[in-house]
């Protein structure tokens, strides 16, 4: 089955893939400034924002763009065991393999012995999952200026506190990612669909429909993805049920958006 609705549905699967990255003005500026910051002699960069604001996507894209030209490493899922963490970094950055456990002092020695021309950049996603102890070690590592860390954090009250206590004095740059505005949301949806050659469905998202979606998702990328995935799921279902409902690609009925919102739990019936 290769319907336009199925294709459109798959566009909104909640995956993080640099290929799917959509260029949005605000995100692009942030992206550029982060790229510049990496080149600057900063110790640490903190990237934070509410869940679903595109932090993982951002890091993935950054890694994808820079991995060929620079010494950059991305860890999407945190390595929670301290020894494992050092071992992984030692192997990836310094090509040093360890079979035994590796402690902080030993790893510090390796880091200091390196005389790299270029300081390696380590991107740590989901950093709120690291223990406070390991976080403190990461801070000490970055103080040596031998490794540069870009840390991505959920922004909640608790994590705000972590950000303040652990990084305030040491972080040289903080970058916040936010939900999309109405205009950005429209661009986001349409560009995403057009990337997958779903031009007809991209056209369905008038300003009115986007407004309705914005009301429900507040411009959160993940919520929007979920909503639109369900929306096109509804379309496909109607399509398969021999057109119980007259389907067209001129506009999205409010009913469908509301049904999708009920299904995804954005509104409670």
């Amino acid at each position: 089955m290769n319907s336009i609705f199925v294709n459109s549905k798959n566009v909104f699967l909640d995956t993080v893939n640099s290929k799917d990255y959509v260029q949005l003005d605000r995100v692009s500026t942030i992206y550029q400034s982060l790229k510049d910051s990496i080149k600057k002699p900063l110790k640490m960069i903190l990237l934070y924002g509410k869940p679903g604001t595109g932090k993982s996507m951002f890091l993935t894209k950054l890694h994808h763009d820079l991995c060929e030209s620079s010494n950059i490493y991305l860890y999407q899922t945190p390595i929670l065991d301290e020894s494992e963490f050092y071992k992984t970094l030692a192997q990836d950055i310094f090509q040093t393999k360890y079979n035994d456990t590796l402690n902080f002092t030993q790893f510090m020695k390796i880091v200091k012995n390196q005389e790299n021309q270029e300081i390696p950049v380590v991107l740590l996603d989901e950093a709120q999952l690291y223990s406070e102890l390991l976080m403190e070690k990461i801070r000490l590592l970055s103080d040596t200026r031998s490794i540069k860390f870009v840390i991505s954090l959920h922004k909640t009250e608790r994590e705000d506190l972590i950000a303040k206590e652990h990084f305030q004095t040491r972080i040289w740059e903080t970058i916040e990612l936010e939900n999309a505005s109405k205009a950005e949301l429209k661009i986001y949806i349409q560009k995403k669909l057009m990337k997958a050659n779903c031009f007809d469905t991209a056209n369905m998202f008038s300003t009115h429909t986007v407004k309705k979606i914005y009301k429900l998702t507040h411009g959160n990328y993940r919520d929007t993805n979920k909503l639109l995935y369900t929306l096109f799921d509804i379309y496909t279902t109607y399509e398969q049920h021999s057109n119980i409902y007259p389907l067209n690609t001129t506009k999205v009925p409010n009913k469908f958006v509301e049904m999708a919102a009920i299904h995804t739990g954005l509104i409670h019936a």
Partner: peptide, 18 residues
């Protein structure tokens, strides 16, 4: 697979409530 009939029912309830 989406249970469209159930969803339609829920949607009607939602509309009435609103």
């Amino acid at each position: 697979m989406l249970n469209i009939h159930e969803l339609e029912k829920q949607w009607k309830i939602y509309k009435i409530k609103s």
